[in-house]
């Protein structure tokens, strides 16, 4: 797409003066898949318009690893918790291991439960094949340690996301590290039997992929 066309769509986002117009403009901009759209899509994450933010996240996920450095910078800059949650969601959706440290920190240290939730989920979706092979093992051991912590979070939604994250992670290391899969199974059995929330207890009983431990 021509740059002028992208620029026109960026202007339309800036000029939108109703929530519906904003949504439409963001959807159009996201559909371009243009790198130049990234800063604008990220700015939209801070507007309190969930539908526009959702469209921006989908657009950023489609831009894949190109969007990652921008997202990391945005998260570090100290955005509002809801903007941060959306950015973490985009990062999780992309699954680029460049985001590993950010996701690890967000899972256990962010004050917002929405951010911790999205980050815990993201740790189960990392594309390890994109990481330099000598770094994989140490990265993975941090992930399992962090998710074991998250499964004890004070908020049910973070524990729920950590269960899903652990299942996803187990599927990723099913062949390479079967011993981790066994410890995940044991940890999830404990959650199923003892979590305070019925929904979190139930989640490990449903394996979302055939490699997920029950």
């Amino acid at each position: 797409m021509a740059n002028t066309q992208v620029l026109r769509l960026i202007r339309a986002v800036d000029a939108a003066d109703s929530p519906a117009e904003l949504v439409k403009a963001v959807e159009d901009l996201a559909a371009t898949g243009a790198e130049a759209a990234i800063p604008t899509l990220i700015a939209v994450l801070s507007y309190s318009n969930p539908r526009a933010a959702r469209a921006a996240v989908d657009g950023l996920i489609k831009l894949d690893i190109t969007a990652v450095p921008f997202l990391l910078e945005h998260i570090q800059e100290g955005s509002s918790y809801s903007a941060r949650a959306w950015a973490i969601e985009a990062l999780s959706g992309i699954g680029d291991p460049q985001g590993l440290e950010t996701l690890l920190r967000a899972t256990t240290q962010d004050f917002s439960m929405s951010v911790r939730r999205a980050a815990a989920r993201g740790l189960g979706k990392l594309r390890w094949q994109m990481m330099a092979s000598e770094q994989v093992l140490s990265g993975q051991s941090k992930v399992i340690e962090t998710l074991f912590q998250a499964v004890q979070d004070s908020e049910w939604i973070v524990r729920y996301a950590a269960v899903v994250g652990l299942q996803g992670f187990a599927a990723a290391v099913f062949i390479s590290c079967p011993s981790w899969v066994i410890s995940i199974e044991m940890r999830l059995a404990q959650t199923a039997g003892s979590d305070d929330s019925l929904a979190v207890q139930a989640r490990p009983c449903w394996p979302s992929s055939k490699f997920s431990p029950v």
Partner: peptide, 10 residues
């Protein structure tokens, strides 16, 4: 927001 939808689905 997803957080509110998640609470409702719970």
């Amino acid at each position: 927001e997803n957080s509110l939808k998640l609470i409702a689905l719970k």
